[in-house]
């Protein structure tokens, strides 16, 4: 009798610790943040002492040119970075999907940039972009060119940040697309070979369409992650010069710690969260649709 009850309780016992931690340290803070975004709150106040000001934080944000600028920088950054990384990553995967010695070593080396701390990545690139001792300007002056103001000029700083991110995250897309390529049905590719398809035709008509589901998920994952980039840019430029590289998460950090406007920072976090939720939800729906489609196809196959 008691064992039966113990058995019935087991799932809850197993779930309880995780549930409690998530509720206390993730779910509750998020609700708290939504509430805080309606407050005029600075860090020295308890939340109960802060004044409720309704939607004023949000209206203030949208009329704030600096915030709009940082929103635009965020979107520009994500779009540019994801486009470049998708093209490079998928291209490299198509190119390197061959039966060669040392592929696993190559893959291991490619993961390194993703594994080391973003702070360290920022540090390395800041050093390489250094106006006098950095390797880029040194090489340029050695070859007789003018040094480039990598991190000192707005447009260059944006480009530098993009380059660093491309360096760090292209391997992610490369590895996912390579895995997708290697799980493609060999029969389809054999068949196209027999029909006399050239390499390019194989890629365009067979490989890319078959990889598409994985590519879309990869794209969404990377897009979501690109909104989270913070440390690399913080170390390299700290959002400057001006606002040229100040993406949204950096602005949240600055609003909270420098301007001490917790309510406004919470409102910004809220907006960022909404964007991310939409993206995540899209991904989930897409995955479900794919699963349903696969199930339907399998059923059709079985009937035949």
């Amino acid at each position: 009798m008691s064992t039966a009850r113990a058995n019935r309780m087991t799932p809850y016992l197993f779930l309880a610790p995780a549930g409690i931690v998530l509720a206390v340290a993730l779910f509750y803070p998020i609700c708290y943040m939504i509430y805080a975004s309606f407050l005029d709150w600075n860090p020295s106040q308890r939340i109960g002492e802060a004044d409720f000001i309704g939607l004023r934080n949000y209206t203030k944000l949208f009329s704030d040119a600096a915030f709009r600028e940082s929103m635009w920088v965020t979107i520009k950054f994500s779009m540019v970075v994801v486009t470049i990384e998708m093209i490079l990553g998928v291209g490299l995967a198509l190119l390197l999907d061959r039966n060669i010695r040392g592929m696993s070593v190559l893959r291991t080396l490619f993961i390194l940039p993703m594994m080391i701390a973003p702070i360290v990545v920022g540090l390395m690139w800041r050093y390489m972009y250094h106006p006098t001792v950095g390797i880029f300007n040194r090489t340029l002056t050695d070859w007789g060119f003018d040094p480039i103001p990598w991190l000192a000029d707005g447009d260059w700083a944006f480009a530098s940040v993009v380059i660093a991110d491309v360096w760090q995250w292209t391997p992610f897309i490369f590895i996912l697309s390579l895995a997708a390529l290697q799980s493609l049905p060999a029969s389809a590719i054999e068949a196209s070979k027999i029909d006399g398809a050239t390499g390019w035709q194989q890629i365009i008509y067979i490989k890319l369409p078959l990889m598409l589901p994985v590519l879309i998920v990869t794209l969404l994952l990377r897009l979501i992650d690109s909104f989270k980039v913070l440390e690399v840019i913080l170390v390299m430029t700290n959002g400057g010069p001006g606002l040229s590289t100040e993406i949204l998460s950096l602005r949240i950090n600055r609003t909270a710690s420098e301007f001490r406007e917790l309510g406004e920072a919470a409102a910004m976090s809220n907006l960022l969260l909404i964007v991310l939720l939409i993206l995540t939800f899209t991904m989930f729906i897409y995955n479900k649709a794919q699963d349903a489609r696969m199930a339907r196809l399998r059923k059709v196959e079985e009937e035949v």
């Binding site: 998020i30 943040m33 949204l248 919470a266 995540t280």
Partner: peptide, 28 residues
């Protein structure tokens, strides 16, 4: 499905979003 949607959504929460509430709750 419900669970995996929830975990997926929670997974997407960036640290920057948690900054303000975690600071407030942990401190006060």
């Amino acid at each position: 499905d419900v669970v995996s949607l929830w975990t997926l959504m929670m997974r997407m929460v960036p640290p920057a979003v948690l900054l303000v509430p975690v600071f407030g709750i942990w401190t006060f």
